[in-house]
């Protein structure tokens, strides 16, 4: 079974599930089967969030096994590290240059962020693409576009999906008010991904 596995990770509220939905809509537009798995509930209160997206001609199950992801798209550096072992030996990690500190229970115990996370990611990832998603989104004047920029950066590598499939998905998912801004953010992300 020829299935492309894309793992999305980040922190609650970053738009991870929305991104997964766009990816799934693009697959549907391309006439492919798709399954996505997500966890709701407790995870919304500042916890880490993931979405498993699997696309192919026939996709029987919805969870990506560890060691089975072709791509990891992470909205946050530490959350990229946490999910890094989902990547295949030939997998690629797209990571936003962004840090969100976890809650530290006591001032004396320190901030609790992984020291040297950049180095750890570079050393451990089979292949690593840094995405300046926040910089690009900021330049576009809307930090909510981070998720679309990341999808753009990923888009060049998903051979099954043509630019028009992505555009149809973005038009489907986003309201008229932000639609053009999303398409622009996506194109900026795609250009960034090609240059990387």
């Amino acid at each position: 079974m020829d299935i492309t596995n894309i793992m999305l990770s980040g922190v609650g509220g970053q738009g991870i599930l929305t991104s997964g939905r766009v990816l799934a809509l693009a697959a549907l537009d391309a006439g492919l089967d798709v399954k996505m798995s997500e966890v709701h509930g407790m995870s919304q209160r500042g916890g880490n969030v993931d979405a498993h997206v699997r696309i192919g001609r026939e996709v029987p199950s919805s969870l990506i096994p560890k060691g089975g992801a072709h791509f990891l798209v992470s909205f946050e550096k530490m959350e990229a590290l946490r999910y890094l072992d989902f990547l295949r030996p030939d997998g690629v990690a797209f990571v936003a240059r962004h840090e969100i500190a976890p809650l530290s229970p006591s001032l004396k115990e320190g901030a609790g962020y992984v020291a040297g996370v950049d180095v750890a990611l570079a050393r451990k990832a089979p292949s690593l693409v840094w995405v300046d998603a926040f910089g690009i989104a900021q330049a576009l004047g809307d930090l909510r576009m981070v998720n679309v920029v990341l999808l753009g950066a990923l888009s060049n590598r998903i051979g099954e999906l043509a630019p028009e499939n992505w555009e149809a998905a973005l038009r489907d998912r986003f309201s008229a008010k932000v639609r053009e801004a999303c398409l622009e953010a996506f194109r900026k992300g795609a250009a960034h991904g090609r240059a990387a």
Partner: peptide, 14 residues
Amino acid sequence: SVDLSDTAIPARPP
């Protein structure tokens, strides 16, 4: 293939 056993990643409890 990716070994994370030597990396302590703090949890993000809700």
